[in-house]
Design a protein around this nucleic acid. Structure first.
Lengths: 199, 199
DNA sequence: GCCATTCTTTGCATGCAGTGCAAGTTTGCA
DNA sequence: TGCAAACTTGCACTGCATGCAAAGAATGGC
């Protein structure tokens, strides 16, 4: 089914376009790279580019369209006795471990994003979908209602903040720090209610 | 100084372009409106549009370029005995009160943003600048260091989450709820460390 | 192994976004 | 009143993004 030649080729092309976009932008900056450049390096026609990504920005970010469902799936898969925060934290640990494994693409992505604020916007818009899906799952676990109670949307939103902050600090340490530690540290502060740090 | 004819005309043109963009997009959707349409309704040439906003999205959002400094200024202006969280909360109350006063533009802005996820991205990218400036001010108040300690970036980031969530709920209630109450409620949950809500 | 079906790639044409430049117009100030 | 600075506008150009239709490649039944 999912492993036919056709499907594998599509995945390969998608990845080739993403990597081409990412590396070219890392070299020359966002405005120094055209769709034609990206398509050429990925060995497809410029027109084909748009069969895979709706814009240059999306290709650079290379967001997985299945990510929101993946995130929510990990969350709902956590044992029922865990609180929503505990479950999200556990999911974050898993995600952080996965990201930290990749010593090349993730650092490159984060570096490029940091250098181009325009991409942050596109990225957060992508995360927005994840937040919405996750908020529904959180509501389910906590017996609250999305759009009526604060809790689900707020936790979904804060969760993204925590991950974003951790990723940014990971970048700031030149990827020498442990990403899981950074995520944990941020969660400690948040779950303590953001107390003023000791001076 | 700031009240010369030239300056007032510029502000008026900027506002006219913003309102034109906002209303047209509310009517016809983001793709149903061209720069030419916006310029025409604001009685300027299409080329002049780009003297005021770098893109269509920016015109729709109409972000104040001085907002980051304004926010940080309010924050540093708070009495020194307040903790960083207390000070941010106070600033939020003030901002919420100001937004709630405007019964037309802010609701329209939020409605349009909600209908066009692409704008959320641009919006958050704009907030990013505010977050960075605010993080520096937070670091100052708490004796921490941006980029080294978690606290300043995390609080600056969470603060934006709180406001965003409150605004979204305000929209969800069709702007009937009190925005300041919604902001306060979100802060209560966050400062309590996101405890699981009672079932 | 062959063929009809289905999906993918590609080229072409088109409209709009966004920017640099230079000329024309308005405003501020002496 | 007249000069300098700031603002507006038209023109030209590059690049993004999309629809459409024809050509090419993979799939499954026979």
């Amino acid at each position: 089914m999912t492993s036919g030649l056709r499907e594998r080729k599509k995945q390969a092309t998608r990845l080739a376009l993403h990597e081409a976009a990412l590396r070219l932008v890392a070299e020359r900056g966002l405005d120094g790279v055209s769709i034609d450049d990206i398509a050429e390096r990925a060995h497809v026609s410029p027109r084909t580019f748009f069969n895979y990504f709706p814009s240059k920005d999306d290709a650079v970010l290379g967001l997985d369209p299945g990510a929101p469902q993946h995130l929510a799936g990990l969350f709902t898969g956590r044992p029922a006795e865990e609180s929503a925060v505990e479950a999200v934290r556990a999911v974050h640990r898993k995600m952080a471990a996965e990201m930290a494994e990749d010593r090349e693409l993730w650092p490159l992505r984060l570096t490029v994003i940091d250098a181009h604020p325009a991409l942050i916007g596109r990225l957060v818009a992508g995360f927005g979908e994840s937040e919405r899906v996750l908020a529904v799952a959180i509501a389910e676990r906590t017996g609250t209602r999305v759009g009526i109670d604060v809790y689900p949307s707020l936790l979904a939103s804060v969760q993204a903040c925590v991950m974003r902050t951790a990723l940014h600090r990971w970048l700031a340490t030149d990827f020498t720090a442990s990403l899981t530690d950074l995520v944990d540290e941020a969660w400690d502060v948040v779950t303590a209610g953001l107390p003023a740090p000791p001076r």
